[in-house]
Design a binder for these strands. Structure first.
Lengths: 206, 206, 206, 206
DNA sequence: CATGAATGAGAATTCATTCAT
DNA sequence: AATGAATGAATTCTCATTCAT
């Protein structure tokens, strides 16, 4: 990791720092109000500039959304791919994926919230086709792991496997709707408790 | 029934069947595209009429949303209240609430999806204050039951109780996002499997 | 010609009469100020309505332009095709085409002015591809007639034929920039004088 | 040369070569896309700089247009005045003016194209009042020459003289719309053929 | 000389809503 | 009940222009 921050103007379209700053602001507003209900003016207000000025940095409101989501998914898959490449057993893979997910929620809370709310209809547009791709890859990874777990007798065989998949998936990701970064619990701690519930249930064992 | 219908407003004119039909159509579009992204024209298209014609039946787009949500919540609480009045133990209460919830998802799938997506910010508007009320009442019922269960040693005591509450709540309601009425499983069957996972977890017991 | 004006609402997108009225207004403003310099607001002002109201009738400012130009070209080619099908000699064909052109200028003065000013760059856009097609068909008809005339020794052989083509073509169409319908001269009278100059020149014969 | 250059305005700063270069670039883009449709950014792109940088050289987009047109008209009138001062007969004057015009088209093709497209409405603005003046002076020169020619029985007397004037004027200047400098024909050769058509027509004499 | 970032005044377009018929 | 036509406010986006560096 180089220490030297960009000494001269970095090449490319514009300062990536400012870009990231503005995208963070935009993500915050999108997450709070929903993409459609967010006007460019609101974003600009939150960034302390005029609406038109945003267009120096971005082509359109949609391209901001695009960049927010694709950046998030990029980093998510970096983490997931590392987990999936580690050759863990099914239970350990699920544990690692869940933990990784909570870390991503911690780092990209707004992007996750936006993703939850908007991805379904966005995925229909060609521009956001990667959302559909990601969803499919996602399903393959999680469902495959669960199936492996059932085969290995690590996970229960009496449940509808797709139902289980949806259950585990949703269970993790809806957390983004109430999770506050740097709150009482660290992502790892939340992951631990969630895993405990998902794997062992909330009922006391007889 | 009072004689004084609103003098000019066409709020409750004519056939309640047509009204319900139109609301179902509206709910379908709202659920599919999001409230904000849904134009009155899209609803009218789906209903086979022109945008302006909807205003014979309803005051505004917002009043359609209002009626959809309040009808849904009314029926939901009818069911919940019956359960809560039955004097069941904590585990049985949770089981009954979950089952009732899946039944509501089955009957009001679109309304539930709309509720999930929009209730948070709608609740801030005075008109939709009942959403906030309902949420609070909801939390009281579920959280109270869980607490009673922990006290009765029916539910695990080692979990953060608010985390558990959110977990159970979300776990059930997100199902609306993928649930298709008249699909492979009946609501009761889905409830049964969900409960099995929530209560006992998905891991095989040693 | 039926006397009866539309007794009931005509089918289709909207009353074609109103549509035509608005297009005439738009064409007038486009011709006077140029397409780019014309704001929708100016058109709306000229039509006595608000800018947004135009969108009830048309998809966009561009689609108004499109409809103006395609209607004009449609009628132009109706006239030209009739002339070309008549089996006249080269000189008579040129005379008939010129006369027909002045008639079109008389009927579609604004559309012609717009065409002159905008067709070149519009033709590059796919939507206005028909402009390029028309230009090509146009060249074929005129240039072909001139060539036939040279072969028949009706037109001079000592001139660059493409230069002659451009000369005749431009000579006719620029007239639209100053021509006022219902002015001192009828289109036929103007055509006659133009033809006299084009065919015989302006110099006194020795 | 006065010392008092404009205090803050960068109007006439530095290298006149660079200035001319940039104006040529601007003229090229104006001619290709139209003045209104040309953004400062497009000009800057074509010049290999950023939009803001142009303002070091010019006050405004309009002042670029102004300089392009006034430079062109200045040189045009230099040529015309020489012709008009030469004391030629009407026919020879027309011949000389036409030839001079094609030379100007050759040298200022873009400026001529811009002039054709924009002068009519620009002339209404005070800043471009010289366009109206020029047009008037132009008409006086050409129309006067034609009238003299009719009086001298060099030109036909049976034609509407204003129609003839427009005919000759347009006939020459529209050539700018298709003329490519350094093309097959020299300006003098094109002038020769045009004159031959204008004076003697394109029909074979009996 | 040129850049990067912003401004601010429109521009086109959308859309909930109204209302006479 | 429904239509056709319009309103008017808001929204996204564009662009000439400015200015500190």
């Amino acid at each position: 990791m180089p220490q030297n921050k960009p000494p001269k103007k970095p090449a490319g379209t514009a300062s990536p720092d400012r870009r990231r700053e503005l995208l963070d602001t935009a993500a915050r507003v999108f997450a709070a109000q929903g993409y459609n209900a967010t006007t460019v003016r609101k974003i600009a207000d939150a960034a302390g500039m005029l609406a038109g000025s945003l267009y120096y940095h971005f082509d359109s409101k949609e391209s901001m959304l695009d960049e927010i989501l694709s950046t998030f998914l990029g980093e998510l898959w970096e983490g997931y791919d590392a987990v999936l490449a580690a050759g863990l057993g099914p239970r350990e893979t699920i544990e690692a994926l869940v933990t990784e997910s909570f870390r991503e929620i911690d780092r990209h809370r707004d992007a996750v919230a936006i993703y939850q709310r908007e991805s379904r209809h966005l995925a229909l547009q060609p521009r956001f086709g990667y959302l559909a791709d990601s969803r499919q890859k996602f399903e393959k990874a999680w469902l495959g792991t669960l199936e492996r777990g059932v085969a290995d007798r690590v996970f229960r065989a009496d449940l509808d496997i797709r139902l289980t998949y949806r259950y585990v998936r949703d269970t993790v990701w809806v957390a983004a709707s109430w999770y506050r970064p740097h709150g009482r619990h660290s992502p790892e701690e939340i992951a631990r408790q969630y895993l405990s519930m998902v794997l062992d249930g909330i009922a006391v064992r007889d």
